[in-house]
Amino acid sequence: MPTLYLLPNLLDHSQDHHVFFSSTVDTIVPTLGGLIAETEKEARRYLKRFLFPEPKTFCDVPILLLNEHTTALQKEELIETVAKSHAPWGLISDCGLACLADPGADIVLLAKQRGIQIQACVGPSSIVLALMLSGLGGQRFIFHGYLPREEKLLEEKLKQMTANPQKDYTHLFIETPYRNQKLFNQLCTTLSNQSWLSIACGLTSDQEWVKTKRIAQWKKEQPVFDKLLAVFVVKNN
């Protein structure tokens, strides 16, 4: 039966993958007949970490791309390739876990419809780690991905998070590193002083920091993002 493995990737690529991945991943990757990834550069860097049986090397593994530019027809063609393969295929995100904040979910659904066996391997997720480390509760939460960039739309979105029926949920969202400071300023302007804001920055890296404070406290502090990836977590009370 054809198999698709959902494989973990690192959040900080300078780290040793053995610290964050189970040994199962080291066993699976050398057996892959191909890898589905967002970019070929990241896919090759990922494969280079693993030891392949000679004469096979990381350069010999076919790579097919899946990103925001992939059409519905191309996704069907990806699945057709996996379905016809005698060796398992893998699916990775550029960082973190496949299918979380990346287009992998579409491929998983198509694979299920084709009867392809799917197995997921655990690994680091910035979304999950930020929620765990925030202290703001994970019973009911919403991940919003990227928020609107236009100031007015962003303000409206933030106000929705603190209004019924969403006010009792924990809200998570991300931003590109160079816009972290601008988003932080907007949060301090729009949210009430009693709202909680947790910022998880550079998770799993040597520069990791996680701080949880009320907005009133954040207004007295300017966080230093240093162009690091950050996850923002908000709770109304």
Rank of each mutant, 00 (worst) to 15 (best):
G138V: 00
P55I: 01
I107V: 13
G96Q: 10
P53C: 00
C121V: 05
K75Q: 13
L51F: 14
A83L: 09
V128R: 01
L147R: 10
R179Y: 02
G202M: 10
V29M: 02
V224E: 11
R49F: 07
F232G: 03
L154G: 08
R44H: 07
C59N: 14
K152M: 01
Q113C: 10
M1A: 07
L183V: 09
Q181D: 12
E150R: 03
E68N: 09
L158G: 04
A83K: 11
D102G: 00
K56P: 12
Q194R: 07
N236L: 04
L35I: 00
I36Y: 02
T204L: 07
V25P: 12
L6Q: 13
F50K: 02
P62Y: 04
E76Q: 09
M1L: 09
L73H: 04
S134E: 04
P124N: 05
A83H: 09
I215H: 10
Q74C: 04
A120W: 09
C201T: 09
P124H: 07
P53D: 05
T162K: 01
Q119L: 07
Q217G: 06
M132G: 10
N185L: 15
D206T: 12
L97Q: 05
A163N: 08
N67L: 04
A43H: 04
K84D: 15
Q181E: 08
Y178A: 00
H17I: 05
L78T: 02
C95W: 15
R49A: 08
Q15A: 12
S93V: 00
C99P: 07
V19G: 15
L4A: 06
V231F: 01
T162C: 06
Q222L: 12
